[in-house]
Nucleic acid binder design. Structure first.
Lengths: 195, 195
DNA sequence: CCTACCGATCGGTAGG
DNA sequence: CCTACCGATCGGTAGG
């Protein structure tokens, strides 16, 4: 159950992520980060190249996690679409709760990426949202879901989930699985056709 | 239909709000703001006292708008609770769409307020959220709504609405009223008891 | 990983 | 509303 010790670089990423979440990327100084790690500001640069490099790594690593877990959750195309959408929602919530600080940075600080990273990031996000949109569209086509506007519904669904990192703390009264289930229930029951 | 001309101070607030939304409060410099207004940085200070004063005014003015519109929308206690909640949702959406830039700042930049303003702001936000929570609780008590956790449901509901300013642009294919109606329909139909 | 430092930029002010 | 400027702080580097 014990994790391997973190490399210095990984420690920097983790501590920076927590600071970026709490104060925002622009308002976090490299001196604050260094102090939090117990070293001097200049020393950071033997492990990283720049402040933005940290943000880049955090944002793109989490994008990767979202894709991997979405793909695994929805892989079985023989299941009803509504069930696959439910699995995608629960997978999304589990990624969000697995590292809430990194998730918050992913959701809110990406705009401080400079070009071309910012455009690449937005393309990834669009592609991920398209995965949800396609599920909703298929669900509507097969009369498992109903909504006047699948794209609108998919965005609303994701937005409803993405507020979680600003709220979730590990060890709270609700565990990740229970949160995932409740959110899926509250958000999808209104979409699913009742028999 | 034409609005009265803006005072210089109001122009500063408006332009700053747009910049705060696009770049974030911390990453927006007073020199950028001055340039956007066609004046020099030092000149800003004959109209305002500080950068944070602008943020303070924007955040608290919008909080006031949310309270006023919520109160008006839910004033008639003789209506069914589900109907009052629906009116509150639509009122919330209309405030969000009335000034999407100010709404985005209200939602995401308040953490750059220094104390005691930050604590005051969070207290107002909690009070506003409590208004929604109480409606959900009443709805459950009167068997008009169903959810295992009214507080959780109320927060999810608001979060689902609050993603709108990052997405909404005036003059799009959906008007404010249609957006408000669709969101209420998608989010509440899953909560309301079907007869 | 530290010391010592760089040029740039920050929010804000004085005086007109 | 501008000019000229302030002390502080920023991200980052050189050399050890």
């Amino acid at each position: 159950m014990s994790a391997p010790p973190l490399s210095r670089k990984a420690q920097i990423d983790r501590t920076a992520t927590a600071l970026f979440r709490a104060r925002g990327f622009a308002a976090t100084s490299m001196r604050e980060l260094a102090t939090a790690l117990g070293i001097e500001a200049g020393s950071l640069y033997s492990h990283i190249k720049s402040k933005e490099e940290i943000l880049h790594r955090v944002c793109f690593a989490l994008a990767e996690e979202f894709f991997v877990d979405f793909t695994r959750a929805t892989a079985d195309a023989t299941l009803p679409v509504a069930q696959r959408l439910r699995a995608a929602v629960e997978a999304h919530v589990r990624v969000l709760t697995r590292d809430a600080a990194a998730s918050a940075v992913f959701l809110h600080e990406w705009r401080h990426l400079s070009e071309p990273a910012r455009t690449e990031f937005l393309a990834l996000r669009d592609k991920y949202e398209a995965g949800f949109r396609h599920l909703v569209e298929q669900g509507v086509a097969q009369h498992e879901l109903r909504t006047p506007d699948p794209a609108f519904a998919a965005l609303t669904l994701l937005a409803s989930l993405n507020w979680l990192p600003s709220w979730y703390r590990p060890g709270g009264k609700l565990g990740p699985n229970e949160i995932a289930h409740r959110l899926a229930e509250q958000l999808l029951y209104g979409l699913e056709v009742r028999s």
